[in-house]
């Protein structure tokens, strides 16, 4: 899984510029992911690649189109020092994996990594290093394991358990 490295405070306008928000389709959105700041991204990204960033990834607009565009592009996980809260919720609710870990200074663009969610470990095959990360809170992990909020609700029949 190749690392696509971004900086701090990457906003949702960078992830998916507003002019493309005339569809909610993940695959269509993916063709414009990072269009203004990394025009090569949508062409070169491969299934399973990982987006890596610093603080406050996904700040700005509440557009769920941002995590949808990343899912559509085949991104398997976003690793950041911290996430903006709406992006964080949106990602979990639609089943995009997130890892909050302070490895920004140790991982570089193009590094090949593997992630074990069960163990909470990122293995950097390029640098021959391993980094631990804290798993998500239990409730959020449950949402993710279900595939997102909608499958979770279906499974739980949330409404009936009032």
């Amino acid at each position: 899984m190749r690392i696509w490295k971004f900086g701090h405070n990457v906003d949702t306008d960078q992830i998916i510029p507003a002019e493309y928000l005339t569809t909610g389709n993940a695959k269509k959105l993916a063709t414009h992911a990072f269009a203004k700041v990394r025009p090569e991204f949508s062409e070169e990204v491969k299934e399973g690649d990982v987006v890596m960033a610093g603080e406050n990834f996904g700040c700005g607009s509440s557009r769920e189109h941002a995590p949808r565009a990343l899912l559509g592009a085949g991104i398997s996980c976003v690793i950041a020092r911290s996430f903006a809260r709406i992006f964080f919720r949106n990602s979990i609710n639609i089943g995009l994996h997130l890892i909050e870990a302070d490895v920004f200074d140790r991982v570089e663009e193009g590094d090949e990594i593997e992630i074990s969610f069960e163990v909470g470990m990122i293995r950097n095959n390029t640098k021959k290093e391993e980094y631990k990360f804290k798993p998500l809170p239990e409730f959020m992990q449950k949402l993710l394991d279900s595939g997102g909020l909608i499958p979770y609700i279906k499974k739980q029949k949330w409404e009936l358990n009032k």
Partner: peptide, 18 residues
Amino acid sequence: TGIGSTEAAAALATGRLW
């Protein structure tokens, strides 16, 4: 507070959200 479209859908169905 701001939320996403999936959450709006869930709340529309159940009247609730986490």
